[in-house]
Write a protein that binds this DNA or RNA. Structure first.
Lengths: 103, 103
DNA sequence: TATTTATTTCGCTATTTCACAAAATAACAA
DNA sequence: TTGTTATTTTGTGAAATAGCGAAATAAATA
């Protein structure tokens, strides 16, 4: 579980996770949008894989990464329960959170 | 915002935050339960303060730390929103109403 | 003013993290 | 087998992080 927090601590990794939310992607496709060297990207993907935040399957020479939503959900709800924070009840909360997420 | 994730990445700091959930505490009281040296603890408290996860007020010679729940809530809801992970309550209702339940 | 208590800052070491270029590996096609 | 593409592993260096003991600071009290 602690590995999940560490994985989320890096902005590049959070960006990758957000990209994978829409659809699964190969490492090469990710590399087109994340401007770090391939070795660096590979390292980030390994951290995400170790935290089980992403799953990988090979298709020929390409590796397909996809978001493991359940692990992310578990982490978020673990945080919520650890601090006894309830679900938001107003749309304003959701908008506020969406705005904060872009920073 | 990124500072919040980094602050949460360390298990000692998460422990401190959980302690502060119940009630505010002085640095000395925190030190009794967190077994690191005082300089190390002071460093952790500074990280939490920089992320605005805690507020500090001085009472005489002692510094009182208390959890800034709103910043923690914002971080959690930012995560939920970024990954479209819905709370199983009103948030789902709002989304469902807004998008006419399609996906 | 001098002392005591609570906490921080300073100075240092060890470990981890992030980044890159170059070399290596995996799968496939010719 | 040789070559091509996709991706990772290796090696290295710079910067950040966590840890500690010793010294410094802030506030209260004698």
């Amino acid at each position: 579980m602690s590995e999940v927090y560490k994985a989320l601590a890096d902005p590049t990794r959070r960006h990758i996770l957000e990209m994978l939310r829409t659809s699964e992607m190969s490492a090469g496709q990710i590399a087109e949008q994340v401007h770090v060297s391939k070795p660096t990207l590979s390292g980030h993907l390994n951290v995400l894989k170790a935290a089980e935040l992403v799953d990988v399957t090979r298709h020929g020479t390409t590796l397909i990464y996809r978001l493991n939503t359940s692990v992310l959900e578990e982490a978020i709800f673990a945080l919520m329960s650890a601090f006894k924070i309830g679900a938001p009840t107003e749309q304003a909360d959701i908008k506020g959170a969406a705005h904060a997420a872009k920073e």
